[in-house]
Amino acid sequence: MKNLKNYVLVGAFVVATLFVIAADHIDAPAVTGTRSDITDLYAFQAENPENLVFVANVQGLLSPKSTNSAHFDQDVLIEFNIDTDGDAIEDLVIQAAPRGNRMFFRGPIVPDQTGTVTTYNPANGTDVNSVIITKYGDEAIIENADGMSFFAGPRDDPFFFDFAQYTAILAGDATSFREEGVDTFAGTNVLSVVVEVPKDMLGDSDGDINVWVETKRKQ
């Protein structure tokens, strides 16, 4: 029983349907600047059309200097939630939990319970894979197992957004984005968790799925 750990929701990013790109930088004051702050969720078809890729980025706006010492919070679980029947309740989850210099993955599995509380039991069965967390500046370490691929570590922030112009639009000082915007996040990094999964591991669906990612802190 000592392996059972309860995690409670601290941050969430919700997106509907497949093939999505979305971000949430700066504007989540409750978690901004913490190691549980979610900046991006990506879900898209892999190079292999039979696979899907899920990406969660946390800890945005890292400078190169701060990236060198940045690390995943050992008490924070990153959980991809997958709804295959359109009822906005997770049917499957992929859990990523850092331990030392490795990221451990469970899933896709049916969750023990749905909602804001997750029971994580790494000793339960054969659903666990892991990858060494890539260090800043090193070549990406990718682990392949059970038909899936895994990565965890720092990456350049891929999201382009002209935040200054966005603020000007909200203030009524501009009416549209500039044709060539200024990338507010240029030169900053995030910590990424990436999972590539065969579609047939996601069960029966009508072709559309709902995907959201949550960070949950150990209690």
Rank of each mutant, 00 (worst) to 15 (best):
I141T: 14
A43I: 06
F160W: 05
N124H: 05
N189D: 01
I209N: 07
R35T: 06
L52G: 11
G187K: 02
L9R: 15
D204T: 15
G115H: 07
G100Q: 01
G187V: 03
D112W: 07
G33N: 06
I133D: 03
I142Y: 11
A30Y: 05
P49D: 13
P29E: 10
A88L: 09
V8C: 12
R35S: 08
E196F: 00
V117S: 11
N189K: 03
T67D: 01
F150V: 10
D156I: 14
I26R: 11
F13V: 04
T32I: 09
D85V: 15
E47R: 07
D87E: 08
P158G: 04
Q113G: 14
A12M: 06
V31Y: 00
E139A: 01
G203K: 02
T118V: 15
I132W: 03
N48I: 12
F151V: 08
D162C: 01
W212T: 08
V55I: 01
E179H: 06
D127Q: 09
K2W: 09
T118S: 14
I94F: 02
V53Q: 02
V211Q: 15
F105R: 10
N51I: 11
G115E: 03
M103N: 07
T114H: 03
F72Q: 00
T84F: 00
E196Q: 05
N101G: 09
D208P: 07
